[in-house]
Design a protein around this nucleic acid. Structure first.
Length: 339
DNA sequence: AAGATCTACAACCGCAGCCAC
DNA sequence: TGTGGCTGCGGTTGTAGATCT
């Protein structure tokens, strides 16, 4: 582990790359492709290890790299994605064409972090710093009811919020009301991402103002699964309150949209349905969310959510999504049979 | 003008996961 | 099943230029 085996074979150069080295590497990869990185330095005539060559290519020499400063749009997207993904730089970079994980990581550490702190926002939690301090105090004091107090302060902050940070914060408040169950095992768990369902790009614009949000599902016909359209996440997610599942068998109601309608909407007095579309009003201060367990899963054409393990990272990297990043801002659903 | 400090970002390091054997 | 090679990721360090004192 650690130093790559090829680095022991001979004295390798380290440090900054010279223009001559860049040229050798660029010429070699342009002609032959990189193939096995460990063999690249020898074939390209470089006194570097393969790992160093790979890094230089990926972060600097690749022809598809975008140069120059980050735009405000890119910056905002990074902040939003970081709120969802945390320090998963490679996944964040996958949503910003022409940018590398290293570049984004550096930009975050050198610029965005500072800006957020100046605005009183904790860059790690995306919450107001004062609240983070409060939480730390609670933890230090070892109060048994710290979680309750924390939720109360979150509610207060959410109601008063208008900034994007507070919108994100409200999302977390809202999403913390969910427990997520694996529909195959039936075990409750948080999804395999930092505690968030990827809702931040949905219709959350007014969340901070009135502590409610709407999640729109495309309901085309009785055989079509609901899907969520998002510029950050695309594809069908199924959300339902398990409290009203028609049977103990969690798979029995998977395929029918009717059950979704029944379970999802009948419990929610503020939902609407107008044929081809339906939206659910989600009230963050509604006991509906306090008392229900939600399950979620990736829908496939013939499968049940949970039959295939849901891999967030892979899903984020699908072409469906990549086609809908900054290069293409128009909404486009994975199962785009809408109307 | 010169040394100190700051800033941005390039590059390295250690680790984990995957795969072939 | 264990081992070693390879790749990719995220944290950290190094370095050069800019700015400050």
């Amino acid at each position: 582990m650690g130093k790559h085996s090829c680095c022991y074979k001979q004295k390798m150069r380290k440090g900054l790359w010279s223009p001559e080295e860049d040229e050798k590497l660029l010429n070699y990869i342009t002609k032959h492709g990189h193939g096995c990185w460990s063999s690249v330095p020898k074939l390209a005539g470089l006194q570097r290890c393969g790992k160093s060559c790979r890094l230089r290519w990926v972060n600097y020499l690749r022809p598809d790299l975008k140069r120059g400063a980050f735009s405000a749009q890119e910056e905002n997207l990074i902040i939003e994605l970081h709120a969802v993904l945390g320090n998963r730089w490679s996944q964040i970079a996958a949503q910003l064409p022409g940018r590398t994980d290293n570049e984004i990581k550096n930009f975050w550490n050198s610029s965005i972090k500072k800006k957020l702190r100046q605005k009183g926002i904790d860059p790690n939690t995306h919450k107001p710093i004062s609240e983070t301090v409060d939480k730390q105090k609670q933890l230090t004091a070892g109060k048994e009811n710290s979680e309750k107090i924390s939720e109360d302060s979150e509610s207060a902050a959410a109601i008063n919020s208008t900034s994007m940070t507070n919108i994100l914060h409200t999302q977390e408040l809202f999403l913390n009301k969910f427990s997520v169950s694996n529909e195959t095992t039936g075990t409750n768990c948080k999804p395999d991402l930092p505690g968030y369902l990827p809702f931040q790009d949905l219709n959350f614009g007014h969340v901070g103002m009135n502590t409610s949000s709407s999640v729109c599902f495309n309901l085309n016909n009785s055989s079509t699964l609901p899907s969520i359209s998002s510029s950050v996440f695309q594809g069908p997610i199924r959300v339902k309150p398990s409290i009203s599942l028609p049977s103990d068998n969690p798979s029995s109601d998977i395929h029918g949209i009717q059950n979704w309608e029944a379970s999802s909407f009948s419990n929610n007095g503020s939902s609407t349905s107008n044929g081809s579309t339906a939206s659910i009003e989600l009230q963050s201060n509604n006991s509906f969310f306090e008392n229900n367990v939600f399950s979620w899963g990736m829908a496939t054409d013939c499968g049940k959510p949970g039959e295939e393990e849901f891999k967030w990272s892979e899903y984020l990297n699908t072409p469906f999504l990549l086609g809908n990043t900054l290069q293409n801002q128009t909404s486009q659903t994975m199962y785009s049979d809408v109307n």
